[in-house]
Simulated scan of single mutants.
Amino acid sequence: MLLASPGWAASLAGKPAPPLTATTLDGLKYSLQQHRGEVVIVNFWATWCGPCRVELPAFEAFYQAHHDDGLSVLAISVDDADQTARVRALAQDFDFPVALGADVQAGGYGRIWRLPITFVIDRAGVLRIDGGVGARVTWDLSSLEKQVGPLLRER
């Protein structure tokens, strides 16, 4: 689905976020461009990924606390198509959109080679956190408030 080698991939942080479009589980079209002016969290996850299942509720809590502040979250499941029912069952607990990786065009984000991977884009469309490089981070509400919260206060 996505390209690049993890061994030599340079961070995209500080550069304009690559285009991203998706069709969500509820059939709606999602485009990163439509969310310019918002802080956007894009999270790649899977139902079989333990750390993913730990952090998804933190994204939901952060989304509930900050949606009105201009926060958007898109969770992209990389589960195989035969796991769609499991993805849908888990996604019922979240108010943010969820898409299957097969329904996403996001080639500029590099190869999704480990999970979870999270990208954070600021209001100006600049990628501020590139979860595809460096040590894997599992987000909790405290780390989201500390690292993403300040971006919500920028205008």
Score class of each variant (00 low, 15 high):
137 V>T: 15
28 L>K: 15
98 V>H: 12
17 A>F: 00
152 L>D: 12
3 L>P: 08
27 G>I: 10
112 I>K: 01
79 D>R: 03
121 I>H: 09
37 G>K: 03
18 P>L: 08
60 E>I: 05
76 I>G: 05
85 A>Q: 14
72 S>I: 00
52 C>Y: 00
91 A>T: 05
18 P>E: 07
124 A>H: 12
101 G>Y: 10
144 L>N: 10
143 S>L: 12
82 D>M: 05
128 R>Y: 02
106 A>K: 00
78 V>M: 12
152 L>A: 08
106 A>T: 03
86 R>L: 14
15 K>C: 01
28 L>Y: 03
72 S>G: 05
23 T>D: 04
97 P>A: 04
145 E>Q: 15
57 P>G: 05
132 G>K: 04
48 W>S: 14
88 R>S: 12
35 H>L: 11
49 C>K: 00
128 R>F: 12
21 T>Q: 11
95 D>F: 02
75 A>M: 07
124 A>D: 12
80 D>F: 04
79 D>F: 04
80 D>C: 00
111 R>D: 13
25 L>N: 09
3 L>V: 15
108 G>H: 14
71 L>I: 04
64 Q>V: 12
127 L>N: 07
52 C>M: 02
15 K>H: 06
132 G>F: 13
24 T>E: 05
95 D>E: 13
9 A>W: 04
117 I>W: 09
137 V>S: 03
118 T>D: 11
4 A>G: 15
83 Q>P: 00
150 P>W: 09
141 L>M: 03
43 N>R: 00
108 G>V: 11
69 D>E: 14
44 F>G: 10
62 F>M: 06
87 V>L: 10
26 D>K: 13
35 H>M: 09
31 S>C: 07
